[in-house]
Design a protein around this nucleic acid. Sequence first.
DNA 1: CCAAGTTGTCTATGATACTAGACAACTTGA
DNA 2: TCAAGTTGTCTAGTATCATAGACAACTTGG
Lengths: 242, 242
Amino acid sequence: MSMQDTASSGVALWRLVADGIERGIADGRFAAGDKLPGEVEIAETYRVNRHTVRRALAALAERGIVRAERGSGTYVEAQKLAYPLRSRTRFSEIVGADGREPHGRLIEASDDVATRELARELGLKAGAPLVRIEAMRLADRTPICVSTTWLSAQLFPGAGEIFAATRSMTKLLEHYGVRDYRRGATRITAGIVDATDAARLDLALGRPILVVDATDHDLDGKPLVTKHSRFAAERVEFLVEP
Amino acid sequence: MSMQDTASSGVALWRLVADGIERGIADGRFAAGDKLPGEVEIAETYRVNRHTVRRALAALAERGIVRAERGSGTYVEAQKLAYPLRSRTRFSEIVGADGREPHGRLIEASDDVATRELARELGLKAGAPLVRIEAMRLADRTPICVSTTWLSAQLFPGAGEIFAATRSMTKLLEHYGVRDYRRGATRITAGIVDATDAARLDLALGRPILVVDATDHDLDGKPLVTKHSRFAAERVEFLVEP
DNA sequence: CCAAGTTGTCTATGATACTAGACAACTTGA
DNA sequence: TCAAGTTGTCTAGTATCATAGACAACTTGG
């Protein structure tokens, strides 16, 4: 590798090395507890100066993904949360199943107005009044995702306050008499985190995120809420079952 | 924004601006054909020098996402391929449905040996002989994904040559008498492209990719092939149906 | 204890990223 | 025609990135 490569990509070399190592961990090439190759060896495989490797490892260490031991080596620490995308998906259940403590946090609730797209998703007319809830979900103390959720302000008046009190979308819907609901069509793509979400998710700028758009329906198929969620890609892995 | 931010993230400022604009396009904030805000305005919103914005726009223009017109403005060009993740998924059908021409390309076929994980996926013993096929899929002339596919060398002897001739996994399986097959459990996450895949996908280093791991089964549930695919996130959007 | 291998720290140098300011070239609408 | 707004191009200065080399501090295994 050379500076030429990074000039055209806008990503620092050490960052590419860090991403490569991180992917090796995600792939299972390096398991939790394993010792990574030495700095000199990594430098050779990536054709990079050892200082550049050190910077990459320092970044990974700061994020708690590896741990360096002087004189001995650098060791792997972490792994991802398995997040099944079933028709009936509840964040708290998924996190609980991983042996961790789920948390919800309200960032902001505000009034909004339906764009054409939001109206279509929710079965409303463009311009209809909505409640917009910006929320965050954590496993133990680790931020997993931030979501923007929209609900009809007419069907769910005062939804913002209810969510603030319950910090759970399931309980919010229960409060309005919705016993059960199902996830509808879901769109998934990836992108790069923006500055606002980076701060919320405690992610470095430039990290990848999984972007999920979905609408939940009641058992009659009537749309209830539509969501735009951004997941820290380094902390989760979606499971789609056949 | 400041250099401080980029120092800790390892991503150039212009890259963050470019990613932000690209996300705006993906989100629909800027539709195809729309005029973007002026360079000065973008510079103000990102709190960045106008030259930095120009560099971001130049990068987007080079990738064919926007087009600058001197004296007038900068305009949006592109959009993503919708990729449904159904139980019965065929690349050629998806691309055809988008009005584009699907292509397959063999990068490399070689013999391999099952790791513990591969063996579990394929229902074989660790160390069993495998055929490993590295292939690429395109829509028109645009690379969409690269996949590494593993098959049992005993069940599918000479699979590499067959794929080279047919350039289709469906036809390869037909050749061995498999009439139909289904996608099994699928794992999706996001990451940053590595140098090899970047070259194959014609992506800049540091771009996000969607990483998909899946195993296909025959109608009796017997595993046939297991795949590790990397999609250019900027060119596709997965659709998961309930 | 010793040798080999590891991470940690220092100095130095050239290339690049970002900022700042100024002006040219062009388009659009009044 | 003219003014306002747009993209295109140039010059500079400062901070950061990446490389290179040397050595210290520490761990491990023989």
